[in-house]
Computed example of a mutant assay.
Amino acid sequence: MSELSDLETLVLDFFLTSARNGRFNGVRAADAIARHTQTGSFQELLAQLIEGGSIECVFARRDVNPHIKRLPILPKDKQIEWVKIESLDSYCLYPSPALLAEKISPIELADRPFSRALLLGEAQLAFATFELGVLGRYRNDPRFVVQFHDYMGDMCISGEYYDSIKVPDRDKISVESFGLGLNADLIPHIIVFYRYLADLTPEHQQYWNSFVADHVPMCEPYFQSAVIGDWWENRSIRYAIQEEMRLINEMANAAFSKRLFRNEMTDDLSFDLSAFLVPSSDNFSSFIHSWDKLLSDNIEKDFFETRLI
């Protein structure tokens, strides 16, 4: 076995062993060189494999955790440049999608399309786009809790049903986070990172896969919070109304010792007030009706009563 193929096999075997345990980790360069017993310059061999398109590197300089491929890989020339200057314990090696496509059987994880995407080298924070109807199954199933926030949401089976032996294991699932995407016509879509989709059971991965839509851009606030880890400074109009209601009640209590609104909004939104609505006449009517209940129907009837002195 040549030095090149020896190192390539080491990186491939490490990744596949990790992937089949659900982790999809790369091997640290310092560990790879310790196990690489052939002669020659490790960096030169690695540069040849990167140039040849069979090995990729993830650097701590760019990503805080190089042990997982969170983001798309840097261009080859930049990888080769950094391999020559970065310390061996600060980056990890991965087989490229091209190499994985050659080595992995077409039937492996065929029933788990999103897990298979990671197995074939997809970045964990790459995302799939879905039609909004994908959530209908979970919103209409009392076993599941679907929560909506400004530009994101989450879904899981509730604890009561998760612990129940009557519920099949295939349904004991969750999607840690989903976000809002908009196409050119501003039609909302649901976007989910492959990392979260890969945790679904085969049955639910196939269900989600049936709702896959053409790729759309991720909305900026979700990108800021979910990818960069920066919460946006400007919240939605819905949040502004929530704050106005809270402040009005606070001022009313201070001035008149009673509230104007019986109930205040919370961060957990009903579906009818979320950003995940298909723009249809029925949804518009539901949207208006929900706001009417939350605002005009929510006013304390006796707030404006006067007392004769």
Rank of each mutant, 00 (worst) to 15 (best):
S2H: 11
S2P: 06
E8P: 06
L10I: 14
T17I: 07
R20W: 06
G22P: 04
A30P: 00
I33A: 04
R35Q: 11
T37S: 08
Q38M: 13
G40I: 08
E44C: 01
L46D: 00
Q48T: 09
E51R: 12
S54Y: 13
C57R: 01
V58Y: 05
V64S: 05
P66D: 12
H67W: 10
H67Q: 14
L71E: 15
P72M: 07
I73M: 11
K76T: 15
D77N: 06
K78I: 14
E81A: 07
V83K: 05
I85F: 10
L88K: 03
S90Y: 02
P97K: 02
L99V: 11
I104R: 09
I104P: 00
S105D: 13
P113C: 01
L118A: 05
L120D: 01
A126E: 07
F130W: 11
F148L: 04
F148D: 10
D154V: 05
M155Y: 00
G159Y: 14
Y161T: 07
Y162C: 11
V167D: 00
P168Q: 14
K172Y: 08
F178G: 08
G179Q: 03
L182G: 03
N183H: 11
A184P: 03
D185T: 02
D185W: 05
D185I: 00
E203R: 02
W208E: 11
N209R: 11
S210H: 07
A213I: 04
C219W: 00
E220R: 04
Y222K: 01
W231L: 04
W232H: 15
E233I: 07
A240P: 03
Q242I: 09
R246H: 15
I248E: 03
F256S: 13
R259F: 15
L260K: 01
L260T: 08
L260Y: 13
R262I: 12
E264P: 07
L269N: 05
S270G: 12
S270W: 09
F276R: 01
P279K: 06
S280M: 04
D282G: 09
F284P: 06
W291A: 03
K293T: 14
D302A: 05
D302L: 04
